[in-house]
Structures are given as structure tokens and as C-alpha cells.
Measured scan of single mutants.
Amino acid sequence: MQIFVKTLTGKTITLEVEPSDTIENVKAKIQDKEGIPPDQQRLIFAGKQLEDGRTLSDYNIQKESTLHLVLR
């Protein structure tokens, strides 16, 4: 499924993921596309910060959901 990741600069990254993918996994995909190390990434969905060990389905993230990427 496709999800979108919006950065603070207003750029939107499109990722191909599975509901069973972990947040860690998603961060690795963002690193592949954008070169941002996962340890600098914070992903936010519905106002919650997403934890590395959880999966997209844990957070009920469905196709075409938009996550927000904050760098630390």
C-alpha cells in the first residue's frame, strides 16, 4: 500500500509499505529515499509519536495515510 510522509519543509514523500511493516522499517525506507538517518527521524500520526517496534497496523495506519516527519 502507499502512504505519504510530509516533511517540515512541506515536501511529501510517497512510500510503498505493508501494514505489517514496523515503524523502524518505514524509517529505513525514508533513509533510502531521503538520506536521513533513522535516529534523527520522528514520525507523527494523528498527533502521536510512533514507536520503532510497533507496526503500521498497530496504529491503524491505512493506505494513503499521511505521516508527519520531524527531525531531531
Rank of each mutant, 00 (worst) to 15 (best):
K63I: 11
I61H: 01
I3D: 00
E24A: 13
P38D: 09
R42D: 08
G53A: 10
Q62Y: 11
E24R: 12
E64P: 03
I30F: 03
Q2I: 07
G53S: 12
P38G: 06
K11D: 07
D52G: 04
Q62R: 13
F4C: 02
I3M: 09
Q31M: 06
L15Y: 03
S65Q: 13
L43W: 01
E64D: 09
G10W: 14
L50E: 00
V5K: 00
T66G: 03
T7V: 13
L43V: 03
I3W: 00
Q31N: 07
N60W: 12
T22A: 07
S20T: 13
H68D: 13
I3K: 00
F4M: 04
G35E: 04
E18Q: 04
Q2W: 11
G47Y: 13
K6D: 14
A28P: 01
I61K: 00
L71H: 15
L67Y: 01
F45G: 04
A28M: 05
L67G: 01
I3E: 00
R54C: 02
I36E: 03
H68W: 11
I3H: 00
N60F: 15
K33A: 11
L43G: 00
I23L: 12
G10R: 05
Q31P: 02
H68C: 03
K29H: 11
T12E: 07
I23Y: 02
G47Q: 12
H68F: 14
E16V: 09
Q49N: 06
E51R: 14
I3L: 08
P19T: 10
I23R: 01
R54Q: 04
K33E: 14
T9S: 07
V70W: 12
I36G: 03
V70A: 04
S57M: 04
N25G: 15
E34R: 11
D39Y: 10
L71V: 05
K6N: 10
I30A: 02
N60P: 03
L8M: 13
K33M: 13
E34L: 07
G35D: 07
R54A: 14
S20R: 08
D21Y: 10
T12S: 10
K29E: 09
I3N: 00
L56W: 01
N25E: 05
I44V: 09
I61S: 01
D32V: 07
L67P: 01
D52W: 05
L8T: 06
Q40P: 03
L71Y: 11
P19N: 04
E16K: 12
V5D: 00
H68K: 03
D32I: 14
L67Q: 01
L56R: 00
D21R: 05
Q41Y: 06
Q31T: 06
Q41T: 12
R72Q: 15
K6Q: 14
G10S: 13
G47I: 02
D39N: 09
D32M: 04
T9V: 07
L69E: 01
G10H: 05
Q62P: 09
T14G: 06
I23C: 02
T12H: 08
S57W: 11
V26A: 04
Q49E: 10
E16Y: 08
D21N: 10
D32T: 15
L50P: 01
P37T: 09
A46W: 12
V26G: 00
K48A: 07
G47L: 15
F4D: 02
G47T: 12
E51M: 06
I30G: 01
I3S: 00
L69W: 02
T7N: 04
V26Q: 00
E24F: 08
D39S: 08
S20P: 10
V5C: 02
K48M: 04
P37V: 15
S57C: 03
V5H: 00
L69G: 01
T7F: 04
Q41S: 12
Q62F: 10
Q62K: 12
T7C: 02
K48L: 11
V17R: 00
R72P: 09
G10D: 06
Q40M: 13
V5M: 03
Q40R: 13
Q41F: 13
A46C: 02
P38A: 09
T9G: 07
K27E: 01
F45R: 03
K6R: 04
P37D: 10
L67E: 01
I23S: 04
A28H: 07
T9W: 14
D52N: 07
G53R: 08
I3G: 00
K63M: 15
T66D: 10
E51Q: 15
Q40N: 13
T22C: 02
G53K: 12
A46Q: 15
